[in-house]
């Protein structure tokens, strides 16, 4: 069972391992979500559906579907 970003508790940090879908991967790569980078889940959107992630010092919002495609170590 692969843990994904969506399984993280709020505030928890982990390391990106791989991606589930190629089409999502190529988009995530361009904003700096790359294997071996540290990523943490900052918060969920008020009405759900999306999460805010922290990479180094930048914050990025992605939908749950994209977050679920990020596999963690």
């Amino acid at each position: 069972m692969n843990r994904t970003v969506l399984d993280l508790a709020i505030g928890e940090e982990a390391i990106v391992k791989d991606f589930k879908e190629a089409s999502v991967a190529c988009k995530l790569l361009t904003i700096g979500i790359v294997p071996q980078t540290r990523i943490s889940l900052i918060r969920k959107a008020p009405f759900g559906g999306a999460v805010c992630l922290k990479l180094g010092r930048t914050f990025v919002a992605v939908r749950n579907a994209e977050a679920k495609a990020i596999i963690l170590e």
């Binding site: 089409s23 904003i31 990025v60 919002a61 992605v62």
Partner: peptide
């Protein structure tokens, strides 16, 4: 496919 990816 629809997606959202936005820097805050």
């Amino acid at each position: 496919r629809s997606f959202l990816m936005i820097e805050l």
